[in-house]
Amino acid sequence: MHTNRRATAIAGALVVVGMIAGALSIVPALEEPRYLGLISAHERQVIIGAVSQFIMIPSYVGFALYLYPALRAENEALSLGFLGFRLIAATFHFMGVILLPLFLVLGHEFAQADALGASQLGALGELLRTARDLVNHVALIISLSLGDLLLFRILYRSRFVPRWLSVWGFLGIGLATLASFLVLFRLTDVVTPLYLAINAPLALQSFVFAVWLITRGFDTNTSTTDRQHEVASREMVCG
């Protein structure tokens, strides 16, 4: 029996919204070597990026909230942990939103600065860009990954969704975490072919998972049957 169909469908839709907003939150101008000289001419990119990242906050938290009642019935402790990590991730998202307008301020100051001032602003800009990368691609991803490990642990045990989908989630989370550590230790930059390739399995899994939630929802029959088998097995052992 498929229960909580409306809740799971909304959760799946929020994943899709979050993925679209995530793509729009990328600001290509910030990836250019001399981006401070370009940022004023690409102010619209920065504004769209900030608004898109802000949209990701209710999308990511809403996803957890809509799934929480069904997950809590299966494992309250793990479901609370999943929700908690989503709230932590929302905090990092908000930090990312706040950082983006600061680039516009630096860009305007850079355009009016002399050579010495431009050099100082350039150093400050690099520090700010590094901070944004660490927030968005390390702290945020790791907090999401820890929460999603708990989510897929519940789903794997309960079989609310097929186990191959949960295993795919585990593998994708492992690769995404690896990509975050590569960024942390400056072994790769963000928005590079290597970084995108490592994150591609999780992105594809997230889309498939979202479609599953929208079209199929959670199947609680398997979980109930598993419990019945466990009880029967215990009774046979005790008997």
Rank of each mutant, 00 (worst) to 15 (best):
L184G: 10
I39P: 02
T91R: 00
D189C: 02
L128N: 01
T3W: 09
A11D: 08
A197D: 05
L36S: 09
Y66K: 13
A139H: 08
E31I: 02
I47P: 07
R6N: 12
M95Q: 13
L30Y: 01
G96T: 00
A113H: 04
L196G: 01
A21L: 06
L204C: 01
E230V: 01
L149D: 02
P28D: 04
S233C: 09
L182K: 13
S143V: 09
L196I: 11
R44S: 13
T130Q: 02
L80Q: 10
A64C: 15
D226E: 05
L116A: 04
E43C: 09
L204Y: 01
S59C: 14
A29V: 15
V237A: 10
G147N: 08
R86T: 00
L104N: 07
E31Y: 11
A7G: 10
P162T: 09
L171P: 09
W212A: 01
G172E: 08
L204N: 03
R6H: 09
I173G: 13
L83T: 14
L87P: 01
L36Q: 13
A13V: 04
D133L: 06
P201I: 02
L146C: 14
S40T: 15
S59E: 07
N136S: 11
F110T: 02
L65S: 14
L100T: 11
V105A: 03
L104A: 06
L175D: 06
T177N: 12
T91H: 03
F170D: 08
L106T: 09
V211E: 00
A23C: 06
T222D: 01
R129F: 07
V27S: 00
R129M: 03
Q45V: 02
G122Q: 00
G62W: 15
T225F: 13
Y195V: 00
E76I: 05
A21I: 06
V97T: 01
R129E: 02
T225G: 15
A115F: 10
Y60Q: 14
D219P: 03
R129S: 04
H229R: 11
L124E: 02
A7Q: 14
H2S: 10
I48D: 10
Y156P: 08
L102E: 10
P58H: 13
E31D: 13
F160S: 08
R186M: 03
A210M: 04
V51I: 14
G107D: 03
V190Y: 14
V161N: 05
H42N: 15
V208S: 13
